[in-house]
């Protein structure tokens, strides 16, 4: 687990370089979601370039598609495509590495970008797996601001109704969206109660803590007869005080000075984790 914690910081450095190279990116959410993706891809999910077409593979949809830079960094680390290719092509003219997930790229199941689509799509995937008696699991990651979309709750309703215990949703609860605090924009601090009332098993954990995420995913796997949602309480922009908990870092390209400072901070935190 310890090397995964350091890996999350190494991949944050990749995210930063991808955003600098492409001159754009949703940096705040990339940083908050990183431990969720690292835990899923390197600890939990049965998915790799070798089994990408295996019908028994685990399925993943990044419903908060704007965090695609984090997904690119993770998929490159998994070997789906070279990291250098992402750096070279992200957001460039004619590139498949666009600013939201594109399923013409290896490792990406569904296109997303508009919020509120991933959960109901994953309900369909989980239903298909159940129909075919497959043992695989289906994972979707949503943002907290995304939960204002009504379609999320249509998916929550059907996931609960069909008791899809092969489905696990994760909410990247970083408490910020473009306009500011989620509680000021559209309050939602009773997420656990909301999901429970839709028939879900709900777990609230420190969302940048890989040990806690691991335990939550294991609890989800052991939960039968209902789907699980993990409210992952994260820090937007995690990795450097330059961008942490700042709503204006939702989508931003750092200046040269900010870049230097963020890299220094990321390196320091990675080093600290390696010597913990």
């Amino acid at each position: 687990m310890d090397n995964l914690k350091a890996k999350a910081y190494e991949l944050r450095k990749h995210v930063l370089d991808i955003i600098m190279a492409g001159k754009g990116g949703h940096i705040g959410g990339d940083m908050s979601v990183m431990e969720i993706l690292v835990t899923l891809y390197f600890d939990q999910m049965n998915i790799s370039p070798e089994n990408a077409d295996d019908p028994e593979r685990d399925l993943f949809v990044l419903s908060k598609g704007h965090s695609v830079e984090a997904l690119y960094a993770v998929l490159a680390e998994k070997g789906f495509f070279p990291y250098e290719e992402v750096l070279e092509k992200f957001s460039r003219f004619g590139s498949p590495f666009i600013g939201h997930p594109n399923n013409k790229l290896p490792g990406i199941e569904m296109n997303s970008g508009s919020l509120g689509h991933g959960l109901p799509v994953c309900v369909g995937m989980a239903l298909a797996s159940r129909m075919d008696g497959k043992k695989n699991r289906v994972y979707v990651v949503m943002g907290d601001g995304e939960l204002a979309e009504g379609s999320v709750w249509e998916g929550a309703m059907s996931g609960g109704h069909y008791k899809l215990d092969n489905l696990c949703a994760v909410v990247d609860r970083n408490r910020l969206q473009i306009s500011g605090s989620t509680e000021d924009v559209m309050s939602q601090d009773d997420q656990v109660e909301r999901w429970k009332s839709f028939g879900w098993h709900a777990i609230s954990v420190p969302g940048n803590d890989i040990d806690a995420l691991h335990a939550a995913f294991e609890e989800a796997k052991a939960t039968k007869g209902k789907p699980t949602v993990i409210i992952a309480n994260t820090t937007k922009g995690l990795g450097s005080p330059v961008m942490e908990n700042k709503a204006n870092w939702h989508h931003k390209v750092p200046t040269a000075e900010e870049y230097e400072q963020i890299m220094k901070d990321l390196d320091a935190r990675k080093e600290a984790l390696l010597h913990e």
Partner: peptide, 13 residues
């Protein structure tokens, strides 16, 4: 909305 998204998830599988 659920109808169409669920259909897409089923088709993907």
């Amino acid at each position: 909305q659920d109808l169409v998204s669920i259909s897409a998830g089923l088709a993907k599988c």
